[in-house]
Design a protein around this nucleic acid. Sequence first.
DNA 1: GACAAAACGGAGAGGCTCTCCGTATGGTTT
DNA 2: AAACCATACGGAGAGCCTCTCCGTTTTGTC
Lengths: 206, 206
Amino acid sequence: MSTSPGTKGRPRADAQRNRDHILDIADRYFSEHGVSGSLDAIAKQAGVGAGTLYRHFPNREVLLAALLSARDNELESRRDAIRAESTNAASALELWLGALSDWASAFDGLPEPLRAATATGSSPLGITCQGYITTTDEFLHAAQREGSARREVRGKDLFLAALATSWVRGAAMADDFSAAALSSLSRNGWSTCAGAEASGSNGRTA
Amino acid sequence: MSTSPGTKGRPRADAQRNRDHILDIADRYFSEHGVSGSLDAIAKQAGVGAGTLYRHFPNREVLLAALLSARDNELESRRDAIRAESTNAASALELWLGALSDWASAFDGLPEPLRAATATGSSPLGITCQGYITTTDEFLHAAQREGSARREVRGKDLFLAALATSWVRGAAMADDFSAAALSSLSRNGWSTCAGAEASGSNGRTA
DNA sequence: GACAAAACGGAGAGGCTCTCCGTATGGTTT
DNA sequence: AAACCATACGGAGAGCCTCTCCGTTTTGTC
């Protein structure tokens, strides 16, 4: 799984080389210009034709997914470290959400496609997100069993909250403090030691 | 304030007519296509040349700001209603945040430019946001005085949280429930009846 | 070395944003 | 009402972007 060419055996050597090289350049490029940077510019920087880039990565989302999957190991080892080191499920969950939020900050503007992919689901990015939502659920369930997390919260909601944290931090954000505030908000809410049960749905009023 | 042409007296009649008409069309168009829809298409639908559109609204952000300012009354009267009807500051704050979140959902994709404008500040959109942040601060301070909101939270953070709620609700979001979950998260956090003091900063780990 | 399959590259179609400037129009003045 | 000019109009087109198509080149195999 994961090398683009069709159904059969391994890709041709030049194809593999190009693919890897494009990935390298794209990583650097997105780091500098955000996820909205020009794909053609990436092709040019990589010294390949536009056709080559688009054959390997039919659209921006697929390219992003490939880029992120190259970083999978990092996040997964962080997950393992958290599991190993944490003494209680609540702080494990908190650390994991922080890790997710950092992950989603890998490139400027990344949270947006991640949210879109989470919503639609079936794309390669969506699969990736789904996996991490599952992990989030695991941490969350543990915390719930421990009694330190609310019952009505779902992993998906916390995942989105982590994305949102990263989104707030995004781009030209003048105030780095706000992201921390939001993640603290996600943990503690703004209400003083809330009435716990808080009913089910609020939010929309009209 | 607010009619685009330069420094002097009122604009020419045709200019005013075009401006209003463009605003009408743009409102409909953004409602159907989201804030990323094509500006040229709006000009065409409005039956004016691209130049005319861009003279009145030099860029997308300015157009959005004009569109939103046409809706100012709505949000402001909602604010007044909340002030009048609420019996306690906590629920007033909650209602206000809901109103903000609805406001930011006027068009698909609106939260993004709002966030960007909040960050950079000086644009017309930024001014608008700043005003609502101030209002948020008022509601928040009242709640803090009442003892029902945490001290360390700032209006700006709650404003961004409201935008984030709307952002999560955004576009193709398969799951409308998540937005409600996030706003509840913003109020109550995920931790059971938190240890209140929660220290200052957390979030970033690496 | 010869031959197909696989991959390449870049021209170009089509769409978007935004500018520029010759033309038309409103408002004012006589 | 005619003339005048500041103001506003429209749309061609420059420049950038995404993505496709297809003639040409490269690889791997026999």
